[in-house]
Amino acid sequence: MSQLLDIQRRMAAAVMHPLTRAETMPRRRRDGASNIAEAEAIIQPNDRLTSFERLEIYNRQYWFRLYGCLEEDFPGLQAIVGRARFDALMRAYLTDCPSQSFTLRNLGSRLESWLTGHPELIQPHSTLALDMVRLEWAHIEAFDSEERPRLAAEDLAAIDENSTLSLQPCLRLLALSYPVEDLLLQVRNEDGSSASSANNASVARKRKHVRRFAALQPKPIWLAVHRLENTVWYKPIAEEEFRLLSALLAGQTLGQAIDAAFAGGSLSEEARPSFLQAAFANWAMLGWFTQPDPLHAIESLTPDS
């Protein structure tokens, strides 16, 4: 192995190892290895700092930077579980799922799937917490995903029940068990006005968040997280709309998507035409239908696809 690779692996293992509760570098790692010995093996001391202390600067810097990033992205989750449990959750998540992307934008991309396998970290509000994480990640995706040219009026004439319709890549659909969107907006507004200070008022407010979330009653909701004029919006939609849009996103034809929308639903047959007309008018106005993705079109023509 190259010396460079060896040093980088050894230093990364130390830097990415979790800090102690006092936010210092542990003297021993979880596997029993001595961080002191490892630091002395690769890092020179100077007249003021030991090898361990110099390595510790990077260890702390790594965690502070990544904690700050997740705190910014998931304030709603933090409000649900409380500060101390959120810290433990971040530490465990980043230990299991270190960043695999060149940009911190993607740091929370695996949080929902990871939390699904670790419900103990978000109990007794695991469903609520997972709903919040889904909404917070959908927001990140909707914020800076691609927006393609809208379907023009002249493209509409050829559409029939066998057509497939392309939706904006920045549109995200969520089926949630709790109406978390209002609470997330409150948390964001309050956090935004506090300049992320850790003063007493801020801590008290966060405790209030926990109580408020604990009192939230479950109520199924369906949300479209979308972008309009580069602002992200949370739009409540009907369950039938959610099913229909999900089917279109999955590549089903308009006819198939309509079948999926009303399968087992309670909407009377008489009400369905006006429901569909209103829904599609609404979505068209919001620019959710786009020109077909040329790459997708080419892929769909290849024999293997």
């Binding site: 009026a153 029939d160 029940e161 008018a281």
Partner: peptide, 28 residues
Amino acid sequence: MKQSMKALLAAAAVSGLMSGATALASVT
């Protein structure tokens, strides 16, 4: 679902699409 009903619903969807596109144009 009957084929005629399906066609009717698809027509309603397309009609909505057109009216939405028209309304968007009137706003912009």
